[in-house]
Simulated assay, not measured.
Amino acid sequence: MSAPTAYKPVYAEGDPGKGIGGYDLKSPADRAFAFDYDSSGKLDHIVLYRPGTGTCWILKKGDNGWVPVYAQGDPGKGIGGYDLRSPDDRLIAFDYDHSGKADHLVCYRPGTGTIWILKNDCGQFRAVYEESCGIGGYDLKSKADRCFAYDYDSCGRIDFLALYRPGTGTIWILSNCSGTFTAVYAQGDPGSGIAGYDLKSPADRCFAFDWEGNGKLDEIVLYRPGTGTVWIVQKQGTVFKAVYAQGDPGQGIGGYDLKSPADRCFAFDYDGGEKLDELVLYRPGTGTLWILQRDGAAYTPDYAQGDPGLGIGGYDLKSAADRCFALDYKSNGNPDHLVLYRPGTGTLWILERET
């Protein structure tokens, strides 16, 4: 078991805390992710938002700490005309204009067909895409719908949108040509999933990943918390194939068993190589967090705190509400810091690896 002191905090607001940059993190609905606000090619800003209230802030790290470059309080008016008035609203970062920078925001409302894409013009956000009937033929009519940005053509840009509907086998991948989205892959509702992964569980989750370590998020990780199931699929020619597969039930990955319904996973840059080619798996409420690195066809842990564990870098991961994501804290092109936060408590820590 790895020592939790392998990481140290560079920012820490305990439980209870005051949040970060003026954002209080006092609602259980709060969500956060890394974003390229200034089109620098670096995921070094933090978006925090509160679905259902119109609240959205974007923070940057200044000389004297974190400060807002955009702030709409609670209640607020949302961002770029998107009102953020539904508890179901979700936001993600996206490369809309094929620039190689995740500097646009996709705002969508599962179950309604609503999806907007926002561009930042000198601190003012405006819609470059606005639709109430879905996108590219995908209707967004299920509250289960989820979306992520993906590098379908291995060009080094996350300029395709993947949309999926857990429990139905539905997954679509959309290309963007001057604001017109079309499907390059489509498995309707019901569908057969992708590369043998059936997407038949409501618990299924997916994200883009750099399996080859080539700086491109051109693989997809699909996993089923509570079952040990995790697949990594890659586009090979015109078809998708699994490069890693642990079926249902499975044994997880790299020693992490994925046997809890609470398990979560995301891509991370553990070694500061400017590539999101490691995996973080964690179990909120138990102190469990592992970081896995590929070793040939298998994965091995670089960091492991089992169940129960002590968390990481002093952050105990003892709340079921805990969430985590990767951030380019130093603005050097390496998303190699971990942000851990506890919605509803004001708690947020940023951790860096001890060297």
Score class of each variant (00 low, 15 high):
198 D>M: 01
198 D>C: 01
199 L>I: 12
199 L>T: 01
200 K>I: 00
202 P>D: 08
203 A>K: 14
204 D>T: 00
207 F>G: 06
207 F>H: 11
210 D>M: 10
211 W>S: 08
213 G>T: 07
213 G>D: 06
214 N>M: 06
219 E>F: 03
219 E>G: 00
220 I>R: 08
221 V>Y: 05
223 Y>R: 10
224 R>F: 02
224 R>I: 00
225 P>R: 15
226 G>E: 02
229 T>D: 11
234 Q>R: 15
234 Q>F: 07
235 K>L: 04
236 Q>I: 06
237 G>K: 02
239 V>P: 00
239 V>K: 09
239 V>Y: 06
240 F>G: 00
240 F>T: 03
241 K>R: 10
242 A>S: 12
242 A>G: 12
242 A>I: 00
245 A>I: 00
245 A>T: 03
246 Q>F: 01
248 D>Y: 01
248 D>V: 00
248 D>L: 01
250 G>K: 12
251 Q>M: 13
254 G>D: 01
256 Y>Q: 07
257 D>E: 09
257 D>F: 02
257 D>W: 02
258 L>S: 06
259 K>S: 14
261 P>I: 07
264 R>E: 15
265 C>Q: 12
270 Y>F: 13
274 E>I: 05
276 L>F: 14
277 D>P: 06
279 L>W: 06
280 V>W: 05
283 R>W: 11
284 P>F: 13
285 G>K: 03
285 G>D: 09
287 G>Y: 08
288 T>F: 00
289 L>H: 03
291 I>N: 05
291 I>Y: 00
294 R>L: 08
296 G>S: 03
296 G>V: 02
297 A>Q: 12
297 A>R: 11
299 Y>L: 03
300 T>P: 01
303 Y>H: 15
309 G>L: 03
310 L>D: 07
312 I>Q: 00
314 G>C: 01
317 L>P: 04
318 K>T: 04
318 K>Y: 05
319 S>R: 14
322 D>I: 10
324 C>Y: 02
325 F>M: 11
325 F>D: 14
328 D>R: 10
329 Y>V: 07
331 S>P: 02
332 N>Y: 11
333 G>P: 06
333 G>A: 03
338 L>E: 02
339 V>H: 07
339 V>F: 09
340 L>R: 09
